[in-house]
């Protein structure tokens, strides 16, 4: 069924002119942030030719890949009208649990499973607080953010955990396929999978409907509590995958790992067009948003700008990107 659907879409596309396709792109929500990304990239490459080298670009990609991966889970939460402030803790806790499992002498598979399991449990905890008890997502995940962080300090006493790990494990964080770092491949794969899930599946449709009008969705038979539970579980599990990748990269689980990263992740989703009011947003937009922040960070380094300015510049980009989105919606009457 889906194959035949894709064929129709494909044949329709071949009938369009190239210009037509570009004009079509213009209506996508991601269009704005994509243009911004290309523009910023062009400006930096004009200033320094080193920016566009494969070496540098792959480094940039790897640098923002963890934020981008987490933003995929985050944007789904945001589309339901929620927020997940605890992704940094889920990430850090997962890397710590992975390290501890290695330290206890278990296999690579067991260590990865333990890390991902931590994220899954973390997400269930968030999701149940929100659906079963009815806590506002902001409060529920603010609480679990602190609990997770506190547990990490309690377990590590502030000392990094650096167990022996087999060679094969470090491929996840340090390996390359051709010139492309493995974390970047994981990021792209997740982006494709979840973009399809959000656009093509019933689950995705229900996520948008829940955020668009929760009451109407419920009255239409959408099991909104299950949808919400699912997105928080996905968000934390995806964050824990970022934690496993991060640990594989440095082979050291830092007590402060993931600290404050929720803000970068939320920023990526917002820059990518997600509305914190729910119902609007996209996985690809969030990843492009993370890329924009990553490219700016790289530009600051390459152009020898004071690194302290980087945060201020990122903040400015968030405000500009979201303002443009809001203004565009105002003038197109929500049709954009």
């Amino acid at each position: 069924m889906t194959v035949s659907g894709n064929e129709v879409a494909a044949s329709e596309q071949t009938e369009r002119t190239l210009l037509g396709s570009v004009m079509e792109l213009r209506h996508m929500r991601e269009f704005g942030v994509l243009v911004a990304l290309l523009l910023v990239g062009a400006l930096i490459s004009l200033a320094t030719p080193y920016f566009l080298t494969t070496n540098n670009l792959m480094g940039v990609f790897r640098a923002f890949s963890l934020t981008a991966i987490m933003s995929i889970g985050m944007v789904m939460v945001i589309i339901t009208g929620g927020i997940d402030l605890s992704v940094g803790s889920a990430m850090g806790l997962a890397s710590l649990v992975t390290a501890l499992t290695f330290g206890a002498g278990y296999s690579t598979a067991a260590a990865i499973a333990a890390g991902l399991g931590t994220g899954l449990a973390f997400g269930l905890f968030n999701g149940l607080l929100i659906t079963a008890i009815g806590l506002p997502p902001f409060i529920a995940t603010l609480g679990s953010l602190s609990i997770g962080r506190g547990m990490m300090y309690m377990i590590t006493h502030g000392v990094p955990v650096t167990p022996e790990t087999p060679e094969i494990f470090s491929v996840i964080g340090q390996g390359y396929v051709g010139p492309v770092p493995v974390p970047v491949i994981i990021m792209v794969a997740l982006m494709i999978i979840f973009a399809i899930v959000m656009r093509r599946t019933r689950f995705g449709r229900h996520v948008y409907a829940t955020g668009g009008n929760e009451y109407a969705a419920r009255l239409s038979g959408v099991k909104v509590n299950r949808i919400k539970l699912a997105v928080y579980v996905l968000s934390s599990t995806i964050a824990s995958l970022a934690g496993v990748i991060g640990f594989s990269r440095y082979l050291s689980a830092e007590p402060a790992s993931g600290f404050g990263s929720e803000l970068d992740v939320i920023a990526a989703a917002a820059i990518g067009g997600a509305s914190l009011a729910g119902g609007i947003g996209s996985v690809t937009g969030a990843v492009i948003g993370a890329a924009l922040v990553g490219v700016i960070a790289n530009g600051v380094v390459l152009l020898n700008i004071n690194t302290y300015a980087q945060q201020a510049i990122t903040g400015g980009v968030i405000l500009i990107a979201v303002s443009l989105d809001v203004l565009r919606n105002r003038y197109t009457g929500g049709n954009g």
Binding site: R205, Y208, A209, G212, A216, A217, G221
Partner: peptide, 18 residues
């Protein structure tokens, strides 16, 4: 508008939600 429709969604998406 408050209970029957997801206003930001298309006719198709609202139609098929049930």
């Amino acid at each position: 508008q408050g209970q029957g429709l997801v206003l930001g969604m298309s006719v198709r998406e609202n139609f098929s939600l049930t």
